[in-house]
Design a protein around this nucleic acid. Sequence first.
DNA 1: GTTGACTCTATAGTGACTATAGACTTTAAA
DNA 2: TTTAAAGTCTATAGTCACTATAGAGTCAAC
Lengths: 129, 129
Amino acid sequence: MKIGKLAKLTACTIQTIRYYEKEGLLDTVKRSEGNYRLYDSRAIKQLMFIKHCRSLDITLSEIRQLIEIRDSPETTCNNVNALVDRHIKQVDLRIEELKELKRQLKILRRKCTTGRVVKDCGILLELSQ
Amino acid sequence: MKIGKLAKLTACTIQTIRYYEKEGLLDTVKRSEGNYRLYDSRAIKQLMFIKHCRSLDITLSEIRQLIEIRDSPETTCNNVNALVDRHIKQVDLRIEELKELKRQLKILRRKCTTGRVVKDCGILLELSQ
DNA sequence: GTTGACTCTATAGTGACTATAGACTTTAAA
DNA sequence: TTTAAAGTCTATAGTCACTATAGAGTCAAC
């Protein structure tokens, strides 16, 4: 299978697949006579693993770690658990930050009602302090 | 006042100040004989305005718009209100996305308990599907 | 044989900074 | 007065995870 088909099957762009290869997340695969990459089902699995991780906002560097861990099947997986725990904490923190941000924005928004002219705009006045 | 003092007063880094100037958010200021930038209180105000906006996650491009609007004091400020409203919506959307992400991560986390070996790790198994 | 679809590499751009190199200026101490 | 340290200058590259483009090569069908 060539890269276009893999891209369709996995709903990745061709550029992204090549990018993951360059970053060492996908194995390099053999090439056709015309230098086209040739993929098999193993590549689909690898790519879906990456996609799944990315959909959970796991960074490429963390994915690299997970791949490395996965390839030592007899070690304990405590570091996998730790990685996920750390990730949940980060997401939580970001949610709290954004909630506070929203609160601030709403306060700001209330400083001005529609139809004023700029020099009386409560929002701009507030932002200028 | 030279750039280092401005940086201290506003808790910005020197590089960031120069960056904002390059991006047209800060006025270019006059220079000393030795080509050092010389700032006055006007620069402090401009920079604090930018900082205040950035703390609300307003993009540099939006800040540019706000500056432009602010400099036409007789026009209505409806576009300021619209910009803030749009921003609140975006933040809200992002919060919802992150909440869903957190839910997914927690589900994932429950797939594995501590102390297993990698080849039995429920998290890695789940991610591989 | 030629058109069109596909693929290749290499490079630049995104946003909002951050970091570095190498040179110049100013200030303070010896 | 020298010199060392601290401050500043410009220009450039790096960050992250892609995305977009240029220009060239490959392949299949008509």
